[in-house]
């Protein structure tokens, strides 16, 4: 019997991606691959370079050296094409408080030239559980509702890839659970690839298929949690894996983690 070839489409690839601000290196020769349909946890403490990496992948900031391919495109040369297919929920994403949830989504939909906008808006609101407050001003929304609205704004453009930057930041336990549940459903229900950036390890470990650990712009480890744990000789607990790679800073990643 002929063995079927498994094609893993690389949605994101970076090659020596580097960003420097003056003398400070924020992202240092980053080589990463994100495959289609996975939830990829992008971990690291504050200032590790996670957000800067995401901005480079979106074409919103220029790499100092190296390059990236997102959905097969160089974001520097094709920023609009990349941004058409990639959703981005920024850390501390704000809302237009004087607009309703529906109007906010209509604005994003207009910017993306979405056909059948009204239906798309209600579908997105339904997915994040905000249908009932569609016509309420977002200025009156709680933090959790704002984050869910942000996710709806990401999803309304029907992206192939989403970057979620600290999506659970500032949420209460209920809000975190709801957000994680939503994120977990995205690959199966919408066929999305998710890059989930966070410093909250225990949350990411609940939903991520693979994780990358960043520290001061350098990639410390990347792979499925179980593999990283095996390499580190610890239990498959992300906190322990994380601590191991930070302690063994000099060992920086190697063969076993690729």
């Amino acid at each position: 019997m002929k063995r079927e070839k498994v094609v893993v489409e690389k949605i994101v690839e970076t090659f020596g991606l580097t960003k420097r601000y003056g003398r400070q290196t924020v992202v240092d020769r980053l080589d990463l691959t994100v495959s289609q349909g996975e939830i990829f946890g992008f971990l690291g403490p504050n200032g590790a370079g996670k957000t800067t990496t995401l901005l480079m992948l979106l074409g919103l900031t220029e790499p100092t050296s190296g390059y990236a391919q997102v959905l097969g495109l160089d974001p520097r040369r094709w920023p609009l094409e990349v941004k058409s297919s990639v959703g981005y929920l920024a850390e501390n994403m704000g809302v237009y408080g004087d607009l309703t949830a529906y109007q906010s989504l209509a604005f994003i939909g207009d910017l993306n030239h979405i056909n059948g906008l009204s239906q798309a808006i209600y579908e997105a609101l339904d997915l994040v559980g905000l249908s009932e407050v569609a016509h309420k001003k977002t200025g009156q929304f709680s933090r959790g509702m704002r984050q869910r609205l942000g996710l709806a704004e990401v999803l309304i453009k029907n992206p192939k890839l989403v970057f979620l930057d600290e999506p659970t930041l500032g949420l209460d336990p209920d809000g975190i659970a709801t957000m994680l549940e939503l994120i977990e459903r995205l690959p199966a229900e919408k066929g999305l690839t998710v890059v989930l950036s966070s410093h909250l390890l225990h949350l990411v470990s609940r939903v991520a298929h693979r994780v990358a650990i960043l520290d001061r712009g350098r990639l410390m480890a990347v792979g499925p949690l179980e593999e990283l744990a095996a390499h580190a000789g610890v239990s498959a607990d992300l906190e322990q894996v994380y601590r191991y790679f930070f302690k063994n800073h000099s060992q920086v990643l190697s063969e076993a983690t690729r």
Partner: peptide
């Protein structure tokens, strides 16, 4: 300041 600039610029606009 209100965090909406990145929202706009993440859309397909120059």
């Amino acid at each position: 300041n209100q965090g909406t600039l990145s929202k706009i610029l993440a859309q397909p606009v120059y």
